[in-house]
Amino acid sequence: MEDLKQKLMKKHLLAPGHTACAGCGEALGMRLIVDAIGPNCIIANATGCSEIFTSKYPQSAWEVPWVHSLFENSSAIASGVEVALKARGKTGIKVVAMGGDGATADIGIGCISGMWERGHNILYVCLDNEAYMNTGIQRSSQTPFNASTTTSPSGSESMGNQTLKKDMIAIANAHRVKYVATVSLANPKDLERKVKKAVETVGPSYIHFQAPCPLGWGFDSDKAVEIAKLAINTGLFPVIEYEDGQLVKVQKIAKKVPVEDYLKTQSRFRHLLKSDAGKKVIAQIQTIADANIEKFGLV
């Protein structure tokens, strides 16, 4: 068994022994993404779950060169690494910046805007688990409409988070990012293809990965992949691809599913199922999904 294990175990670029929760969609997605990027890279990672569960001194899960500085600067750190490589005449190494949804869409967006505007040859990966999970499930600008979090709790006067997800894809495209795509656990082949394409892109590229979080979203540890599938099939997470600002491909929904089927799988939405007011909110969420379906031609 030991011999077989040695022989057959694939060498991943994110090693086991990391301390992500069992069934963590982010850990899974990050491993798939890093394996697709390949060994010839340097990663700058923002503070957050992905950093904490991979880099507890004196151990690291990273098999590639990796640096963490602060919460909001992985894109600027990556910019520095990229120009340092240029200054040293080193070519062919892909520089990657990574961060969670808060690090990307909230606290780090200034540095990301700078990085994109300057046109660095950097792949930025957003690991979107739709709230500040590392600090205990507080809402971010990527938290879905009316999800309950610890800072947007549902209660007698509130149905949860009152804002819509900030549109990072539009923001990336507004910066003339050359390649922009969303990826999902539901389709690892598509994820791999897109990440490779982003790596091959000379100039800025952006990958937005939806990272189902068993702890923060409230589902059993074996459900991350099926929840990712539901997010796509409801239209709530469109899997799309842009080149030079042009929509070039979308993943069609095989069989459209009502949003309620997605919402009921997660405790962050469960309050919506309990009242007439909640039913109204579900109808609003359905209109968000339908608008996505129409906008991107998903069915």
Binding site: P16, H18, A22, S55, Y57, P58, Q59, W62
Partner: peptide, 18 residues
């Protein structure tokens, strides 16, 4: 700088969580 070796998390046998 306390930088560490790649893949050293393998020392951490998370099977005990199960």
């Amino acid at each position: 700088g306390i930088n560490v070796k790649p893949g050293s998390s393998k020392e951490n046998k998370t099977g005990s969580w199960r």
